[in-house]
């Protein structure tokens, strides 16, 4: 009886050690379900050379969303009008997205007077109200938002094609009037200040 008990205990201990030292159970999970054998987004994976679970799609992949819009067909940068109905909803969406992704550099009013712009060196994020930009077709705004330009990165991952057109529509609408909110007036004032400082620096031959 005693011998059987001792043997049983020894087996249990040996089993316990065996379990905890095997590579699959490196981390002892007493609650079992807390750590589950699955890949979560942004997790690590030993299956790929860069160690990430999430991988880029193969080169040349076109998403259905992109294929469904004009982007895949005619080059968007020459489009003179927005290829969807410009509704108050679209403009509101554009305004909201503009506030998140564009105002950071171009300022809440599009004057280029953001704090990021004032902390950056030259070339700074340009004003979106310039005559040069207004002279371009609206598709150019969409094109730049999609592919980036100069130091501006591409915003295709953050903004869907519909969102990019919404932003373009909002910018087009913004260009027709001056600053309306306090935020936009502050943007305009700061943009002027930055411009003045830059011209003085340029005149003095400083970078």
């Amino acid at each position: 009886m005693t011998r059987a008990l001792i043997a049983g205990c020894a087996l249990m201990i040996a089993g316990g050690i065996g379990c905890t030292t095997s590579p699959e159970r490196e981390r002892v999970d007493f609650e079992r379900m807390r750590v589950q054998q699955r890949y979560d987004l942004y997790g690590a994976s030993r299956a790929f050379p860069n160690g990430a679970m999430m991988q880029h799609p193969p080169a040349g992949t076109v998403s259905r969303e992109t294929a469904a819009t004009a982007e895949a067909g005619a080059p968007a940068d020459s489009l003179a009008s927005i290829p969807m109905a410009v509704t108050p909803q679209l403009l509101a969406r554009g305004r909201e997205r503009f506030g998140i992704y564009c105002a950071v550099c171009h300022g809440p009013g599009g004057y280029g007077g953001s704090i990021v712009a004032s902390n950056m060196g030259i070339p700074r994020p340009p004003s979106l109200r310039s005559a040069a930009l207004r002279a371009r077709p609206i598709g150019y705004v969409f094109y730049v938002a999609t592919n980036g330009r100069g130091r501006m990165p591409a915003y295709a991952p953050q903004l869907s094609p519909a969102d990019r057109w919404a932003v373009a529509a909002y910018i087009q609408q913004m260009q027709t009037h001056g600053a309306t909110t306090d935020e936009e007036r502050a943007d305009s004032a700061r943009a002027l200040e930055i411009h003045k400082l830059d011209s003085t620096a340029a005149a003095a031959g400083r970078p």
């Binding site: 506030g99 998140i100 992704y101 105002a103 950071v104 953001s114 704090i115 990021v116 902390n119 953050q158």
Partner: peptide
């Protein structure tokens, strides 16, 4: 606070 960047700019 310093740069007025919305959370969604990075956590997109």
């Amino acid at each position: 606070v310093g740069e007025h960047i919305d959370c969604r700019y990075c956590h997109f």
